[in-house]
Design a protein around this nucleic acid. Sequence first.
DNA 1: GTCAATATGGAATGTTCATTCCAGATACGG
DNA 2: CCGTATCTGGAATGAACATTCCATATTGAC
Lengths: 280, 280
Amino acid sequence: MSDTVEKPPVPQDFDALRTAILERKGELPKRLTQVAAYALDHPDEIAFGTAASIAISAAVQPSTLVRFAQHFGFDGFSGLQLLFRARLRERTSSYEERLRTLEQDGAALAESTTIFNGFVAAAHRSVDAIAAAVDPDAFERAVTLLAKSDTIYLIAKRRSYPISSYMAYAFGKLKVRCQLVGTSAGIDDDMLAMATSKDAAFAISFSPYASESAAQARMMASRGIPVVSLTDSAFSPLAECSTEWFEVVEADHAGFRSLSASMAFAMALTVSIAEKRRRG
Amino acid sequence: MSDTVEKPPVPQDFDALRTAILERKGELPKRLTQVAAYALDHPDEIAFGTAASIAISAAVQPSTLVRFAQHFGFDGFSGLQLLFRARLRERTSSYEERLRTLEQDGAALAESTTIFNGFVAAAHRSVDAIAAAVDPDAFERAVTLLAKSDTIYLIAKRRSYPISSYMAYAFGKLKVRCQLVGTSAGIDDDMLAMATSKDAAFAISFSPYASESAAQARMMASRGIPVVSLTDSAFSPLAECSTEWFEVVEADHAGFRSLSASMAFAMALTVSIAEKRRRG
DNA sequence: GTCAATATGGAATGTTCATTCCAGATACGG
DNA sequence: CCGTATCTGGAATGAACATTCCATATTGAC
């Protein structure tokens, strides 16, 4: 008789290790759980870093890394690191292969895969496009404008609504007062009626433009309330009544657009405003 | 006058090094030529190995490796090795290069510009990451699962809510029956109670996980309703109760995450489901 | 063929790193 | 509330490592 304790075999590849970690994550002590999460979330760091550098990133002691490795049957941290490196070697080749396959014969793949790749590619193009299209000076002006306002009214309907809803969430976290317009019922106009010239509005609308959003933005503008807007064309009704406006053209896949670029823009605007306020 | 000898600049990336090696390989001594050939033929070995192990593989002395590196302007072997490691990292996300450019001249720009660039870069990285992380087969299974369900329940709170809200909008346009859970009031659980095993759920939750979402997903699962989920870590409570789950790690900028990659994924899923239904 | 300049191999060196060890902290059971 | 077992942080340790140095070998010029 050797041991009464059950000894699971040492994982031989990354997937086995991953499985083992997920299986035993419940019974792991606090710091080891922390390492487990870090390892699965930042595998590249584990592959390249030294025990010391990884320990700093994961906010643990180097010795904890060693203990973690030993928990899973390795001699020490180095043994575990080998798996992460092996994974990286394999992935580079297989990932390249995959890309090549995708580009060549999209027909042979499952339709869902084609659609997925299409949206990923569209997201890439959209983000590229917005990076090129947004004028830094205009962006800075918009940030200044919104940062000094009292309450920010977020106007968005339908397809744009998810963006403003995320901004509202983020503004909440950042302690920036805002009012989400377009939620429900018919109280939108009542809410907007309370806006003063100390406030500002951020409106989002994409073609086909919700006439309501445009009307609300115009109304705000006519009352001397600055309007910043995000839209997809210079011909948008929003453009003409806005103090500052930005164009984001989401690349489409099969006629459908994701909001990847708009989301990036929205977050950049949100965080910039909060940052500007914080600095005074 | 310092040196009459021409001093080519130290290569800053792998391609520059490769070019430099090819240019100067004629004037290199025997052993250094040997190292040069080995380096270009086995770049992965250089990235991961130690000077000693590489020396054995290349049939040279460790000191030769150091001399080789110094010939190309590096302090020592380690400096050269960094380039080989960086190359492997960039393979996975080739956007790193452009990121570095942005970061370099970010200091002189307005803060809002820096933030904007940061989010654009983060969006790019996120989209790259999700392209690599999503397994086409798993995606196809998820699509099949959701496409054959009667009603799709979309579970998401807080930060994830904008995504599900966009999916609900798109599903509506595509005539796919769905129920958005997490809107308001306390009617969520009542809505979920109506779900049968003919239905399915799609849950989204990112760290810090809303306990409500996890509980609801678990509840659905326990009643035999298939759950597909989108989350940001294998440790997510969603992962363990899902039939299929996907990991999307949104790169962050200054601690804030946009939803660019998640949005692309959501739209791909939505459209794929609609397409699968349409085809029968 | 001889000398000088360069290249090379291999041992010596100093540094960095993973690992171990121990003392204190924390959680757990009685 | 106390005692025990486990966990954690941090310093000590020893091994592995890149690098340097020097003696020898090789090359090329005269």
